[in-house]
């Protein structure tokens, strides 16, 4: 019988070890073993981070939307989908920030600016803001079922708006920028291609590893809420008998039985508890 620490088990250990190995290999190949690009020079080494992170970000948001849909569909409604939505949205935001950061740095390197109103960049930034709002909504507390329902609705809408955002940003940027900043997609081949594929594997492993852990944190938090709830019901029930026993004890012997079952006088129960939630 092993005593697990934290949210790990066999699955996450395998995933975690795989992530470490593939990330290390990607770094080794990406930073040292592959040659610099003819057009981009050393900057091409960012291609081993940025596209994979962007994909992970979109996968995270897509997964969040799918899980939310599954939650909204009455036949498949289960707290599992809600937890998966929460976990994948949060990990998705992390990768979204990474995408924006690496994209910005890459842009600075190759175009000389930290930010450009490129269609895809703008879309990603908008998505990031939208899902930050989604996460803020999830943190507002309240009844878990209500929160799950409202946040599922919000997540589905956010993703449903992606096409609109896509057209808006692409029409807009083609209007604004005469000079196209579209990179002539550098033809990558050989070791560069394999390293890039490796980076997708690495990021995919890191992504799933994080989602699994985050999902389990959500399970634990739910569990604490539910157990707290069972305790709260017991306490609430105890209020009734406590009110009877709280009354000035006539004698040292607190008799159970009739005295407890009898209705407490209004004066007696008025003491002790006041100003509780009565709404």
């Amino acid at each position: 019988m092993t005593v697990h620490k934290g949210t790990a088990n066999q699955l996450t250990r395998v995933l975690g070890a795989g992530s470490l190995v593939t990330v290390a290999l990607t770094a080794l190949f990406g930073l040292w073993l592959t040659p610099p690009d003819a057009v981009q020079g050393q900057l091409v080494r960012l291609i081993y981070v940025h596209p994979a992170a962007a994909t992970a970000c979109y996968v995270g948001f897509g997964l969040c939307a799918l899980a939310s849909l599954a939650y909204l569909w009455p036949r498949t409604r289960s707290r599992r989908w809600d937890r998966l939505a929460a976990a994948s949205a949060e990990v998705g935001v992390v990768f979204c920030v990474i995408t924006l950061a690496t994209g910005s740095i890459w842009g600075r390197g190759s175009w000389g600016v930290w930010w450009t109103w490129d269609a895809r960049l703008t879309l990603t930034a908008l998505l990031c803001a939208v899902f930050l709002g989604y996460l803020a909504l999830r943190r507002t507390g309240g009844n878990p079922e209500s929160r799950a329902l409202t946040s599922a609705i919000v997540a589905v809408v956010c993703v449903a708006l992606v096409p609109i955002d896509h057209y808006a940003t692409s029409w807009w940027t083609t209007l604004h920028q005469g000079d196209t900043l579209m990179r002539a997609n550098p033809l990558i081949h050989g070791s560069q291609l394999y390293t890039m594929l490796l980076s997708f594997v690495a990021v995919g492993l890191v992504f799933s590893w994080l989602v699994v852990h985050r999902y389990r944190v959500e399970v634990l938090e739910d569990r604490f809420e539910e157990e707290g709830f069972a305790v709260a019901i017991a306490e609430r029930r105890a209020e009734a008998s406590a009110a009877v026993q709280d009354r000035p004890a006539e004698s040292a012997v607190v008799g159970p039985g009739p005295a407890v079952a009898a209705s407490s006088s209004s004066a007696g129960s008025e003491m002790g508890r006041d100003g509780e939630v009565s709404e």
Partner: peptide
């Protein structure tokens, strides 16, 4: 230095988030 910065940014973000999630679970 841009390459290093990009890789470092990604690494730091993932590391911080991982640490935070694992610690919450623990």
């Amino acid at each position: 230095s841009y390459v290093a910065g990009g890789w470092a940014a990604a690494g730091v973000l993932v590391a911080v988030y991982t640490w935070r999630t694992l610690r919450r679970g623990r």
